[in-house]
Write a protein that binds this DNA or RNA. Structure first.
Length: 354
DNA sequence: GATCCGTGGAC
DNA sequence: TGTCCAAGGAT
């Protein structure tokens, strides 16, 4: 039997730790509230999990609060204008998530009567919901015994079970080992517990093994190699790209902006017309006495960018070759992706970071 | 499996 | 300053 006296019950050890150390988050239903019968709202679980994809808890907090205040239900979000959702997401990154978020909300309303599907299998059919997010929603919102495998779980399991093959090739084995541990009861608490463990104790560098509930069974700790796991295949170096953006204002103070195509870098976001760096290209938006305001440096996931910012003032009523005029009164730099906000700040203030 | 896709914080 | 990393998904 697995639960003999000399075989520690790993899920129980972790859940006991979580009962005491669960971190407080705006989207989380704490273990004590679950025991009192409180059910998590699947909409809030889904929204938080999408925001948390490759993004830190600290970065997500305020975005989650603003989204749920403005759109309290999935039906509210489904009815929102695309531009409003993209603007609210600005600065959080990976903008395909925002487009898929809207597509998913509308699918839930149109195909599921406004109720989120409850099973991992059904959730997987929705846009922006992959293996991790489907398991997270199924377990956290519905206590389905689904196994979440995120970066935290990969690290925790690779150490606990001494998996030395590098990621991403070892992902399948880590998933299998994680699934073997997943308990039938308290699946939602367990999923959050193992991720909290990775986020606060079993950290990438200098893990706090001394206070870890899984210290005793951890094979990497026994071998003294915990800090070297998980191994990862090296990533390609980031190349340097250079380009130009044109920031035009009318004599009336309007800003010339361009909606980017839905596919590709910063897809669906508002920005300044540009060329030479994102594969899109194109001419200056109008003939003018363009003046170089300086350079903006920015690093994306897979390349470094040096952007030359050109500025000009155009006569009110000028019909541009590209983009559309936005009134000064309704233009908010915070609605732009970060690289464009840096360019704006440089043009407006003479420096990239006001 | 490989590539594309943001951002900000930690070290 | 440069690198790594974070509750990944789509193609």
């Amino acid at each position: 039997m697995r639960d003999s006296a000399d075989t520690p019950d790993l899920p129980a050890l972790l859940l006991d730790w979580y009962d005491v150390h669960a971190r407080s988050m705006p989207w989380r239903t704490p273990p004590a509230d679950r025991r009192n019968g409180t059910k998590p709202d699947p909409y809030r679980v889904w929204l938080s999990e999408v925001m948390l994809q490759q993004t830190t808890v600290a970065a997500v907090r305020d975005y989650f609060t603003r989204f749920t205040a403005r759109w309290p239900t999935v039906a509210d979000l489904a009815a929102a204008a695309d531009a409003d959702v993209m603007a609210e997401w600005a600065g959080l990154g990976y903008y395909a998530r925002a487009r898929n978020l809207l597509a998913c909300a509308r699918a839930v309303v149109d195909l599921h009567g406004g109720i989120f599907p409850a099973t991992r299998e059904a959730l997987l059919t929705l846009p922006g919901i992959g293996p991790y997010t489907a398991a997270a929603i199924a377990s956290i919102a519905h206590d389905e015994a689904a196994t979440v495998v995120d970066g935290n779980v990969e690290r925790v399991i690779s150490r606990l079970r001494l998996v030395t093959d590098p990621l991403p090739a070892s992902k399948a084995e880590l998933t299998r080992l994680a699934a073997e541990l997943t308990p039938a009861a308290r699946a939602g608490d367990y999923a959050q517990a193992i991720m909290d463990l990775g986020a606060t104790i079993c950290t990438p560098r200098s893990p706090a093994c001394g206070i870890c509930p899984w210290r005793s069974p951890c094979r990497a700790r026994a071998e003294g190699v915990e800090a070297t796991l998980p191994r990862k295949t090296p990533k390609a170096a980031k190349p340097l790209r250079e380009g130009t953006v044109w920031i035009a204002r009318s004599t009336g103070g309007d800003w010339l902006l361009e909606r980017r195509p839905d596919r590709g870098l910063l897809g669906g976001m508002l920005g300044f017309p540009g060329t030479g760096w994102d594969g899109a290209g194109g001419p200056a938006p109008a003939p003018a006495d363009w003046q170089a305001a300086g350079e903006v440096r920015h690093t994306f996931t897979h390349f470094h960018l040096i952007l030359t910012v050109q500025t000009a003032t155009l006569a009110q009523g000028t019909n541009p070759l590209r983009g559309e005029w936005h009134p000064q009164a309704t233009f908010r730099p915070a609605d732009l992706p970060t690289v464009m906000r840096k360019a704006h700040d440089l043009a407006a203030n003479g420096r990239a970071h006001p």
